[in-house]
Protein backbone atom coordinates (compact mmCIF):
# COMPACT_ATOMS: atom_id res chain seq x y z
CA UNK A 1 0.00 0.00 0.00
CA UNK A 2 1.57 3.28 -1.04
CA UNK A 3 -1.22 5.65 -0.22
CA UNK A 4 -0.86 5.75 3.58
CA UNK A 5 2.85 6.37 3.11
CA UNK A 6 2.14 9.21 0.78
CA UNK A 7 -0.27 10.71 3.31
CA UNK A 8 2.26 10.38 6.11
CA UNK A 9 4.90 12.02 3.96
CA UNK A 10 2.61 14.89 3.15
CA UNK A 11 1.71 15.31 6.79
CA UNK A 12 5.40 15.41 7.71
CA UNK A 13 6.05 18.04 5.10
CA UNK A 14 3.27 20.22 6.43
CA UNK A 15 4.40 19.67 10.01
CA UNK A 16 7.90 20.78 9.03
CA UNK A 17 6.55 23.88 7.33
CA UNK A 18 4.33 24.63 10.33
CA UNK A 19 7.15 24.38 12.83
CA UNK A 20 9.35 26.58 10.63
CA UNK A 21 6.69 29.29 10.55
CA UNK A 22 6.30 28.98 14.32
CA UNK A 23 10.06 29.25 14.82
CA UNK A 24 10.30 32.42 12.73
CA UNK A 25 7.36 33.87 14.65
CA UNK A 26 8.84 33.07 18.06
CA UNK A 27 12.19 34.42 16.90
CA UNK A 28 10.63 37.69 15.82
CA UNK A 29 8.88 38.05 19.16
CA UNK A 30 11.86 37.53 21.41
CA UNK A 31 13.95 40.59 20.67
CA UNK A 32 16.15 41.73 23.56
CA UNK A 33 14.10 43.93 25.83
CA UNK A 34 15.54 47.32 26.54
CA UNK A 35 12.40 49.21 27.50
CA UNK A 36 11.07 49.26 31.03
CA UNK A 37 7.59 50.33 29.92
CA UNK A 38 5.30 48.36 27.57
CA UNK A 39 6.63 48.53 24.02
CA UNK A 40 3.86 49.24 21.48
CA UNK A 41 6.05 50.05 18.47
CA UNK A 42 4.12 49.26 15.31
CA UNK A 43 0.91 48.48 17.18
CA UNK A 44 -0.81 51.84 17.32
CA UNK A 45 -1.23 54.63 14.77
CA UNK A 46 0.95 57.74 14.69
CA UNK A 47 0.01 60.85 16.64
CA UNK A 48 -2.80 62.75 14.91
CA UNK A 49 -5.42 65.11 16.25
CA UNK A 50 -7.16 68.41 15.72
CA UNK A 51 -7.80 70.20 19.00
CA UNK A 52 -7.53 73.56 20.72
CA UNK A 53 -4.67 74.16 23.17
CA UNK A 54 -4.91 75.92 26.50
CA UNK A 55 -3.97 79.24 24.90
CA UNK A 56 -7.04 78.95 22.67
CA UNK A 57 -5.10 78.17 19.48
CA UNK A 58 -6.10 75.36 17.11
CA UNK A 59 -3.26 72.82 16.95
CA UNK A 60 -2.54 69.49 15.32
CA UNK A 61 0.16 66.87 15.80
CA UNK A 62 2.64 68.66 13.52
CA UNK A 63 3.04 71.34 16.20
CA UNK A 64 4.83 68.73 18.35
CA UNK A 65 6.99 67.01 15.72
CA UNK A 66 10.56 66.79 16.94
CA UNK A 67 9.47 66.43 20.56
CA UNK A 68 8.87 63.28 22.54
CA UNK A 69 5.15 63.43 23.30
CA UNK A 70 3.23 61.90 26.20
CA UNK A 71 -0.51 61.69 25.56
CA UNK A 72 -2.89 61.36 28.47
CA UNK A 73 -6.67 61.58 28.79
CA UNK A 74 -8.18 63.06 31.94
CA UNK A 75 -10.16 65.96 33.40
CA UNK A 76 -9.35 68.71 35.87
CA UNK A 77 -12.06 67.79 38.42
CA UNK A 78 -10.46 64.35 38.66
CA UNK A 79 -10.00 63.70 42.38
CA UNK A 80 -6.94 61.46 42.45
CA UNK A 81 -5.76 59.53 39.40
CA UNK A 82 -5.11 62.46 37.04
CA UNK A 83 -3.15 64.69 39.43
CA UNK A 84 -1.17 61.68 40.66
CA UNK A 85 -0.33 60.60 37.12
CA UNK A 86 0.56 64.11 35.96
CA UNK A 87 2.70 64.68 39.05
CA UNK A 88 4.52 61.43 38.37
CA UNK A 89 5.13 62.41 34.74
CA UNK A 90 6.33 65.82 35.91
CA UNK A 91 8.82 64.21 38.27
CA UNK A 92 10.09 61.87 35.55
CA UNK A 93 10.49 64.74 33.07
CA UNK A 94 12.19 67.15 35.45
CA UNK A 95 14.67 64.40 36.26
CA UNK A 96 15.87 64.73 32.65
CA UNK A 97 17.44 68.12 33.33
CA UNK A 98 17.93 70.27 30.22
CA UNK A 99 16.47 67.54 28.00
CA UNK A 100 13.07 68.13 29.60
CA UNK A 101 12.58 70.90 27.03
CA UNK A 102 12.42 68.18 24.34
CA UNK A 103 9.37 66.57 25.96
CA UNK A 104 5.70 67.58 25.91
CA UNK A 105 2.83 66.17 27.91
CA UNK A 106 -0.48 66.56 26.10
CA UNK A 107 -3.31 66.44 28.60
CA UNK A 108 -6.54 65.91 26.66
CA UNK A 109 -9.63 66.74 28.69
CA UNK A 110 -12.56 64.35 28.33
CA UNK A 111 -14.75 66.89 30.13
CA UNK A 112 -14.55 69.98 27.89
CA UNK A 113 -17.82 71.36 29.27
CA UNK A 114 -16.25 72.13 32.65
CA UNK A 115 -12.64 72.38 31.47
CA UNK A 116 -12.67 75.70 29.65
CA UNK A 117 -9.49 77.02 28.09
CA UNK A 118 -8.78 79.17 31.17
CA UNK A 119 -9.40 76.33 33.65
CA UNK A 120 -7.24 73.99 31.60
CA UNK A 121 -4.44 76.56 31.33
CA UNK A 122 -4.26 77.12 35.09
CA UNK A 123 -4.39 73.38 35.75
CA UNK A 124 -1.63 72.17 33.41
CA UNK A 125 0.77 75.01 34.20
CA UNK A 126 0.80 73.85 37.82
CA UNK A 127 2.63 70.71 36.70
CA UNK A 128 5.34 72.40 34.65
CA UNK A 129 6.11 74.24 31.41
CA UNK A 130 6.17 70.97 29.40
CA UNK A 131 2.47 70.40 30.04
CA UNK A 132 -0.11 71.40 27.44
CA UNK A 133 -3.88 71.19 27.89
CA UNK A 134 -5.97 70.23 24.87
CA UNK A 135 -9.70 70.33 24.40
CA UNK A 136 -12.11 69.79 21.56
CA UNK A 137 -15.68 69.04 20.62
CA UNK A 138 -17.23 65.62 21.21
CA UNK A 139 -16.48 64.54 17.63
CA UNK A 140 -12.78 65.37 17.72
CA UNK A 141 -12.46 63.85 21.18
CA UNK A 142 -14.25 60.63 20.26
CA UNK A 143 -12.10 60.27 17.16
CA UNK A 144 -8.90 60.61 19.17
CA UNK A 145 -10.10 58.21 21.88
CA UNK A 146 -11.08 55.63 19.27
CA UNK A 147 -7.72 56.01 17.53
CA UNK A 148 -5.95 54.95 20.72
CA UNK A 149 -8.66 52.52 21.84
CA UNK A 150 -9.39 54.30 25.07
CA UNK A 151 -12.77 54.79 26.69
CA UNK A 152 -14.17 57.52 28.87
CA UNK A 153 -17.66 57.82 30.28
CA UNK A 154 -19.41 60.70 31.98
CA UNK A 155 -21.78 59.92 34.84
CA UNK A 156 -25.12 61.58 35.55
CA UNK A 157 -24.82 65.01 37.22
CA UNK A 158 -25.97 65.14 40.87
CA UNK A 159 -28.17 67.90 42.33
CA UNK A 160 -25.25 70.34 42.40
CA UNK A 161 -24.39 69.58 38.78
CA UNK A 162 -21.25 67.60 39.63
CA UNK A 163 -20.57 64.36 37.89
CA UNK A 164 -17.91 61.69 37.86
CA UNK A 165 -15.93 60.84 34.76
CA UNK A 166 -14.15 57.55 34.19
CA UNK A 167 -11.30 57.28 31.73
CA UNK A 168 -8.35 55.17 30.74
CA UNK A 169 -5.22 55.31 32.85
CA UNK A 170 -2.76 54.87 30.00
CA UNK A 171 -0.07 57.34 28.99
CA UNK A 172 0.80 56.88 25.32
CA UNK A 173 4.36 57.88 24.48
CA UNK A 174 5.40 58.98 20.97
CA UNK A 175 8.90 59.47 19.59
CA UNK A 176 10.15 62.61 17.82
CA UNK A 177 8.61 61.40 14.55
CA UNK A 178 5.17 61.02 16.10
CA UNK A 179 5.27 57.21 16.12
CA UNK A 180 3.58 55.43 19.02
CA UNK A 181 6.32 53.65 20.97
CA UNK A 182 5.39 52.98 24.61
CA UNK A 183 2.56 52.78 27.10
CA UNK A 184 3.06 53.81 30.73
CA UNK A 185 0.50 52.69 33.30
CA UNK A 186 -0.32 53.32 36.96
CA UNK A 187 2.11 50.66 38.07
CA UNK A 188 5.17 52.13 36.31
CA UNK A 189 7.63 54.02 38.50
CA UNK A 190 9.07 57.48 37.93
CA UNK A 191 12.45 55.82 37.37
CA UNK A 192 11.11 53.53 34.65
CA UNK A 193 9.45 56.44 32.82
CA UNK A 194 12.63 58.57 33.07
CA UNK A 195 14.75 55.67 31.84
CA UNK A 196 12.63 55.12 28.74
CA UNK A 197 12.27 58.84 27.98
CA UNK A 198 16.07 59.10 27.95
CA UNK A 199 16.25 56.20 25.49
CA UNK A 200 13.66 57.83 23.26
CA UNK A 201 15.48 61.16 23.38
CA UNK A 202 18.69 59.37 22.47
CA UNK A 203 20.47 60.51 25.63
CA UNK A 204 20.11 57.20 27.53
Amino acid sequence: MTRPNFDALRLRRWALLGSLVLLVFVGACSKPKRWMLDDITGLMPALKFNLTNDSGRVVDASAYRGKVVLLYFGYTHCPDVCPATLAKLGEAIHGLGADAAEVRVLFVTVDPARDTTAVLHRYVRAFGPEFVGLRGGDDALEKLAKRYRVVYTRGKPNVRGNYAVSHSSAVFIFDRHGRARLIATDSDSVGAISHDLRLLLGVG
Binding site: D38, R149, V150, V151, T153, S166, S168, S169, A170, T185
Partner: peptide, 12 residues
Protein backbone atom coordinates in the same frame (compact mmCIF):
# COMPACT_ATOMS: atom_id res chain seq x y z
CA UNK B 1 -4.88 40.64 31.04
CA UNK B 2 -4.04 44.22 32.03
CA UNK B 3 -4.85 45.75 28.64
CA UNK B 4 -8.48 46.31 29.69
CA UNK B 5 -7.34 48.32 32.69
CA UNK B 6 -4.93 50.32 30.55
CA UNK B 7 -7.45 51.35 27.89
CA UNK B 8 -10.38 51.53 30.28
CA UNK B 9 -13.34 49.16 30.63
CA UNK B 10 -16.61 49.84 28.86
CA UNK B 11 -18.32 50.43 32.20
CA UNK B 12 -17.34 50.34 35.86
Amino acid sequence: YNVYGICGRAWA
